[in-house]
Write a protein that binds this DNA or RNA. Structure first.
Length: 558
RNA sequence: GCCCGCGUAGCUCAGCCUGGAUAGAGCACUAGCCUUCUAAGUUAGGGGUCGCAGGUUCAAAUCCUGUCGUGGGCGCCA
């Protein structure tokens, strides 16, 4: 579509601008009345030292003489040449392409592998809102990459090692309660952690962690117990979200594999002693100091991440590795990537930290688990599900329990996933539970509803085989076609920018346009029935695909 | 103190990468639309000096500099 316009312009400009430049300048006008494409003449005016309006007028006249059949007209408006694509041509093209399965997919990633580190909650702590973001965003990025042909490996890298386990063990040894642990493991573990997270237990905690790292049987058994209980709890959330991982790993995996890495750092002369600890000094590069070993010899976060990165590269030979982790860890990843590079691992150039912003409390500040201040994701999910169920029942639908559960689940899921993904991932968001419970307006359920209504029309059609005839298009029909046409570009941008919100925003706009169409035109029984049915079919296909890339399942009825 | 974000309508956010035509949504508020394909919908309306000040440009919410406000990070947490 765009190339038709570019070609005409290239011909008419006779070498004044290169093809790539023309393509770069060409834009989509803000209003439908301004056509489908617009070429601004300011840049050309500068080169030619002429009045831009005169250039636009001159250009448009030349174009009219060379008008291809796919373009129905050109107009000049304030130094822009506006192109109008022939509506019939547009309709035929879009209906043909957008109804296909796999519309917008590509082969650009064929033969390439991407490792994605996502979710990665900490054991013995509640699954927080931050991990939810990582799970949702990482999952969506993985979907998008797969759609473009990349092979993806999703790794859930659990925070299952570190000094916090020393604290937990101290807490358990002092105040552990088996009954509480059985009834509500996460809550009790959190309680123990918060209680032991006090200066007076600092040394005891570090001792217990050192024992754990040295392989103390009793501590190891406790650690395993905490890990199993937590994982069981997390799995309920993953099941609800419909997220599956290719690998469930964790920092503990590298407990006995860090030696070689530390040795290599030493051999390269990167390691130095500082205040009793071993560090890599990146201060000169403005990246501060990376702690490799504490003064008691135990490992740290960075040590384990370095080891894990090397291990993953050897195992997967990835073309790219994405860490979907909160933005507060920006410095940490910069440090890790830099140290890898210094060690001679060039794959560090293919590692990227896809940061997400923080969810802030009502006070505008970060939630801190350390102070026991957190949002329990499980509760939020549960509540959203219950509200969805209540709403369904109030609409006097006679549903079987199975159907009710299925619909409530999809609706709640869409509210939660879309509620997160509609925001640009790197910006902070104020957490408000009501946002997830809101089903009207710019929300997931709005999208599902538009889809369900479209499906409903198709379901009610009796005779389906009519020849598609295209009459004059209404503004709503044109808008829908134009929007559908743009889907492949959106998918591509979403991947290039690793920004699923582009697909979320697009889906919302698409649903809005559909709703306008729905209200403006009767479908069944109209003389345009065949065309409109096909248009609805295309809409359903695109919306379903887009939502699928976000991780949302559609409902045929709701 | 140093480093990195953010500041757009009463509230919550898009738009900024890649500068262009009257700055968009949702919520809330006001007034309409269900004897026709699902009203979780739709139509219309009020509401903005895009934090502030400079700069670059034919053109700045968008790029650059400064400044104020705010959040995050900065050696023995992850």
């Amino acid at each position: 579509m765009k190339d038709i316009v570019v070609n005409v312009l290239e011909k008419v400009l006779s070498g004044k601008l290169k093809k790539g430049e023309i393509e770069k300048f060409l834009e989509v006008p803000p209003q439908q009345e301004m056509g489908d494409f617009a070429f601004p003449c300011f840049a050309l005016a500068k080169i030619e030292k002429k009045n831009p309006l005169a250039i636009a007028t001159d250009l448009s006249e030349k174009i009219r003489k060379n008008l291809p059949k796919e373009i129905s007209g050109v107009e000049v408006k304030s130094a822009y040449v506006n192109f109008f694509i022939d509506k019939k041509f547009l309709a035929e093209k879009v209906l043909k392409e957008a109804t296909k399965k796999g519309y917008g997919s590509s082969k650009e990633g064929n033969g390439k592998k991407i490792v994605i580190d996502l979710s990665s909650p900490n054991i013995a702590k509640p699954f927080g809102i931050g991990h939810l973001r990582s799970t949702i965003i990482g999952g969506s990025i993985s979907n998008i990459a797969s759609y473009l042909g990349y092979k993806t490996v999703k790794i859930n890298y659990l925070g299952d090692w570190g000094t916090q386990f020393g604290k937990l063990i101290v807490g358990y040894n002092n105040w552990g309660d088996e009954k509480k642990l059985k009834d509500n493991p996460i809550a009790h573990l959190l309680e123990l952690y918060v209680r032991a997270n006090d200066e007076q237990y600092e040394q005891a905690a570090r001792d217990e962690f050192r024992k754990l790292e040295e392989g103390d049987k009793k501590n190891l058994a406790l650690w395993k117990k905490f890990r199993d209980l937590s994982l069981k709890d997390f799995n309920e959330i993953y099941e609800f979200l419909g997220v599956k991982f290719d690998v469930i790993s964790g920092e503990s995996l590298y407990n006995d594999k860090m030696g070689p890495v530390v040795n290599k750092l030493e051999k390269k002369g990167l390691l130095k002693e500082s205040e009793g600890a071993m560090v890599v000094d990146l201060d000169k590069e403005g990246l501060g100091v990376v702690l490799i070993k504490k003064n008691d010899g135990t490992s740290l976060y960075a040590t384990r991440d370095l080891t894990a990165a090397i291990d993953r590269f050897e195992k997967y030979k990835f073309n790219r590795m994405i860490y979907e982790v909160g933005q507060e860890q920006k410095l940490h990843f910069k440090q890790v990537f830099r140290v890898l590079k210094l060690l001679g691992y060039d794959f560090s150039d293919d590692c990227v930290h896809v940061a997400h912003g923080l969810y802030l409390g009502e006070d505008g500040k970060k939630f801190a688990t350390r102070k026991g201040k957190t949002v329990m994701m499980k509760e939020v999910i549960k509540e959203t599900y219950e509200i969805a169920k209540k709403n369904l029942l109030s609409r006097e639908a006679k549903l079987s329990d199975l159907d009710l559960d299925h619909r409530a689940h999809s609706i709640a899921l869409s509210a939660i996933i879309y509620g997160d993904l509609k925001n640009y991932r790197e910006n902070d968001v104020v957490f408000d539970i009501d946002k997830f419970l809101e089903f009207e307006g710019n929300t997931g359920p709005y999208l599902l509803y538009a889809y369900a209504r479209a499906s409903s029309i198709l379901r009610k059609v009796k005779s389906k085989k009519q020849k598609v005839e295209i009459f004059d298009l209404s503004p709503q029909e044109t808008a829908l076609l134009t929007k559908l046409q743009n889907f492949p570009n959106v998918v591509k941008s979403a991947y290039d920018q690793l920004a699923p919100n582009l697909i979320a925003n697009y889906s919302y706009e698409l649903a809005q346009i559909f709703n306008e169409f729905y209200h403006a035109h009767p479908v069944i029984g109209s003389k345009e029935e065949a065309f409109r049915l096909k248009l609805i079919d295309a809409f359903r296909n695109v919306l379903k695909t887009g939502l699928g890339l976000l991780g949302i399942d559609v409902l045929e009825e709701m």
